[in-house]
Amino acid sequence: MVAGLALGAYVGWQLWGTTIVSDRTHRALVDDARRAWEGDEGGSGPAGAVSTSHGTVSAIVRIPRFGDDYAIPLLEGTDDDVLAAGLGRFTDGAAPGQVGNFALAGHRVTHGEPLRDMPSLRPGDEVVVETRAWTYTYVLDTGGDDLTVPFTSTWVLDAEPVNPDGGVQPPAAAGDRLLTLTTCAELFHTDDRLVAFGHLASRERRTG
């Protein structure tokens, strides 16, 4: 009985407790980044990246389909600590706005669940990436549940992703400034990933 209660408490913490904590962390890191960008220091790293106890925050990501109040910090790297604090950027790929593949990862369940609603994304949806100096608007070319791959399918992170099976991939017209979103394919443990591709549509100077 004690073991059952302990297991139930652990599962409850993973499903709800970590999300409550991470939601607070998301809000705090977004506020920290905005304050740094608006202050004299402008951020402590390259291109206004902000060093925090959770990692380096390089941008704030907004996805309008997920609601007007959706704002998630983007941190450098994809280790467990980073993904517990926000979205993570695969650092071998492009930075926001750069030529190449700007590839992001995020949890779909636990730790704030920033990509829980990934399957609801549709081609044409926007992903807005705000840095200290620029706001980049990416537009999705594929839907959030159009492509499921094993976690070992690293081709989705290539600078120019080409599906070896001839299926879903960025269209030729997408250009050379790409976006890739990745998350777990199911809400519970899975070795598969949902993947969505997009391209940079515009950029504008950040005004505050």
Rank of each mutant, 00 (worst) to 15 (best):
T152P: 00
I72W: 07
P161M: 05
D146R: 01
L115K: 02
V128D: 03
A59G: 06
G8M: 14
A196Q: 07
A133N: 15
V109G: 00
P161N: 07
S53E: 15
F90A: 11
H107R: 01
L5Y: 12
A103D: 03
W37C: 07
E204R: 15
W134Y: 14
L187V: 01
G106V: 01
R89S: 12
R89F: 05
T183S: 15
A9Y: 06
D79T: 06
P46W: 02
G4Q: 10
T137M: 05
Y136A: 10
V30W: 11
V127Y: 13
A95M: 12
A105T: 01
L75P: 06
V99G: 01
T25C: 06
A95L: 12
R62L: 01
T19N: 12
A95Y: 09
G198N: 08
Q169V: 10
C184M: 05
G55H: 06
S44R: 08
V99S: 14
D32C: 11
F90P: 00
G175R: 04
D40L: 11
A59Y: 02
V61H: 11
G208Q: 10
D23M: 02
N101C: 09
V156H: 07
V195H: 11
G100R: 08
I72S: 14
A105M: 05
A47N: 15
D81V: 05
R206Q: 12
A49L: 03
D32V: 14
Q169T: 09
G88F: 04
D176C: 02
T135N: 09
Y70G: 07
G42E: 09
Q14F: 15
A174D: 08
P171D: 08
L74M: 15
L179Y: 11
T56A: 13
R193L: 08
H26K: 05
G77H: 03
E126M: 03
A103I: 01
T131K: 06
S53R: 15
V61Q: 14
S58A: 14
G106E: 08
R89E: 10
V61T: 11
D68L: 09
L74Y: 04
G17N: 14
L15P: 01
S202M: 01
F102M: 07
D80F: 08
T152K: 00
R177P: 09
V195L: 12
D31G: 13
G124P: 13
L140H: 13
T182R: 15
H199M: 05
V139K: 14
G112S: 04
C184Q: 03
D81C: 00
G45I: 02
R34M: 08
A185I: 02
V21E: 14
D69E: 15
T190C: 04
I60M: 12
A28F: 08
E186A: 11
V21I: 14
A28Y: 13
R122Q: 15
L181S: 05
A159P: 02
L15D: 09
V50G: 01
H54M: 01
M1G: 14
G17P: 10
V156T: 12
R206T: 14
M1R: 09
E160L: 09
R65W: 07
